[in-house]
Nucleic acid binder design. Structure first.
Lengths: 184, 184
DNA sequence: TCATTCATGTAAGTGGTTACATGATTCA
DNA sequence: TGAATCATGTAACCACTTACATGAATGA
């Protein structure tokens, strides 16, 4: 297995939609994949260099402004398909909210309510964001072939956010019935 | 900010329920926190050593079998409350499934259906696991004060799994209407 | 002219995983 | 007697984050 296959995958994938600069790759990852993927800034350029070295990506000479465009080579496209077909390795779970709720007896019901309310507010905000993304996507015609798939990921985000809100409502109600802290 | 605060938090938290061996800490994290938290094996003992060095955890001398019990000191309890009160730092999102769906046009509807079906099956399995956890928790009386909080995290897992199933059903239906790959 | 955005990188540090290594205890 | 479990650790490696550093183009 190649090292940093995850980052390679994301970079190759965004380049498959259109050739672009490294800066644009970063923006695409942040703006289009942002709600389910992230690459830290300092990783994209090293990854691009390695991909160019391995002939998976082609770099056009820099113009006078110093910017250059990167595009997929045929080999790069093959590699992308291979990576996409490989099973997704999921990062180990680390949900700080759940850890705090699990040991909620130590914090007490009041502090837990605050945490849950915060989560609910975030989920509500996410729903608004997704609604906005849907509106934006309706207007764009150039990526018509991709749009049905993109919509599926938005829908997943919405399902997840609604689930979070439903849980939060139940939990806020339940926490009202919990006894307060003995040792405040 | 302390280094490895996340691991310290998890270790201190499980020790707050009862004193135990390092091995038992590992098992508790895997078995009780497993569905929302993980610590890799090689991190627990170093973390325990550091916590002992900093007087947050007390280590009883090893018996002839070489095992020793760790327990929270009063300072350790304070530190635990501090860490629990700090805002949860969430790891950057990296959802391999969503990445593959987003670029689903490259894989084609059939391959996507397989991925989504797999996700649905996993979620169904999780629901069974949660049902089992609920049954087990009903029987245990010794941690009665913690149980209401533990139940909240199980409920969160159930909400999340049901949301995944609902999304999967919608998505499987939608994918049937997508045009097949042009370049197979 | 000055702030913002576009653009490309490097370097240090670190949190975390994986694999290795060892040995006692328990129970079949 | 031998396998599985309990128990404790180390070492190497790596992916990733954060901060640093630089400079051109754009537009107010």
């Amino acid at each position: 297995m190649a090292r940093a296959a995850q980052t390679d995958l994301a970079v190759l994938a965004v380049l498959s939609v259109a050739p672009m600069t490294g800066y644009a790759v970063r923006e695409a990852i942040r703006d289009q994949l942002g709600h389910f993927w992230s690459e830290s800034f300092g990783q994209i350029y090293p990854a691009l260099s390695a991909l160019v070295r391995d002939n998976l990506v082609e770099k056009t000479p820099a113009d006078r402004a110093g910017s250059s465009t990167f595009s997929l080579t045929p080999t790069g496209r093959d590699r992308l398909l291979t990576l996409l077909s490989a099973p997704a390795t999921s990062a180990p779970a680390r949900n700080g909210l759940m850890l705090r709720i699990f040991f909620g007896r130590l914090l007490g019901p009041e502090a837990c309510r605050a945490l849950v309310q915060e989560t609910k507010d975030q989920a509500l905000g996410q729903l608004e964001t997704f609604a906005m993304i849907r509106r934006i996507m309706e207007g764009e015609e150039q990526y018509a072939e991709h749009r049905p798939y993109w919509t599926l990921t938005v829908s997943a985000g919405e399902h997840s956010a609604r689930a979070a809100i439903a849980w939060a409502d139940e939990t806020l109600a339940a926490l009202e019935t919990f006894p307060p802290l003995d040792h405040p």
